[in-house]
């Protein structure tokens, strides 16, 4: 069984990967269904995760009389109401979409707003927690880019020297970001190749 899984993973992966480098109609014919099936399976995997959350975690809490079952009750009721409304109204209906836009958006946006104050409080203690030269550079960088984002330094546009300096300072994160992106790319490349050659088998459980 495990060998079958490995063969499926490697074969499907190689066919899709080759399609990036070779433009062949035959390869395209093989590649398209694989991508389509993978898209479908991704959706089903998300459904499995949600069902596990609802039935495997919160419903189980109700059955086991967990201390936090009140929280689970709210979740299960809201899940049931939303599911029934969605099945009857369909996702395209405006009424059903208001359930998201008028419930989920206010709550999550408010959470983000509260997070702003928490982030500011945490930022006050940057140098208290990281008292080294790297923390100091980070501290100065945060302040500079906050001021830059606010647009207060717009007056410098009329001073060429300051304008060039600010422009250069504005470009410095690009170099660092490029290095970070290259590092992420190399890491994901290594991970992907390990899966394609069968070294890593996360699907075998």
């Amino acid at each position: 069984m495990k060998i079958v899984n490995i063969v499926i993973a490697i074969a499907a992966g190689l066919i899709v990967l080759l399609g990036y480098f070779f433009n062949s109609p035959g390869l395209h014919e093989l590649r398209s269904p694989l991508l389509d099936w993978a898209v479908t399976l991704s959706g089903i995997a998300g459904l499995v995760a949600i069902l596990n959350l609802v039935f495997g975690v919160h419903l189980k809490r109700l059955r086991e009389n967990h201390p936090k079952k009140g929280f689970s009750v709210v979740i299960l009721i809201s899940f049931a109401v939303t599911l029934i409304a969605g099945v009857f109204l369909s996702p395209a209906s405006e009424g059903f979409q208001k359930l998201v836009t008028r419930v989920q958006v206010p709550i999550e946006s408010s959470l983000m707003a509260v997070l702003a104050i928490t982030l500011v409080l945490a930022a006050l203690k940057i140098l208290q927690r990281h008292r080294n030269w790297m923390g100091f550079v980070f501290f100065l960088s945060v302040i500079f880019f906050l001021v830059l984002n606010s647009g207060v330094l717009a007056f410098t546009s009329e001073i060429p020297f300051l304008r060039d300096i600010l422009s250069g300072l504005h470009q410095i994160p690009v170099a660092g970001a490029r290095g970070i992106l290259l590092g992420i790319a190399l890491g994901s490349l290594a991970t992907g190749i390990r899966v394609l050659i069968g070294t890593d088998r996360p699907y075998n459980g």
Binding site: A12, G13, L34, A38, L41, L182, L189, P202, N204
Partner: peptide
């Protein structure tokens, strides 16, 4: 597991191809 294998294999290929050619 076979379904997961297909998903993981295709996902890895998509990531590798996009990384190499894109980033």
């Amino acid at each position: 597991s076979p379904a997961m294998a297909l998903l993981v294999g295709v996902g890895a290929a998509v990531a590798v191809g996009g990384t190499v050619l894109g980033t």
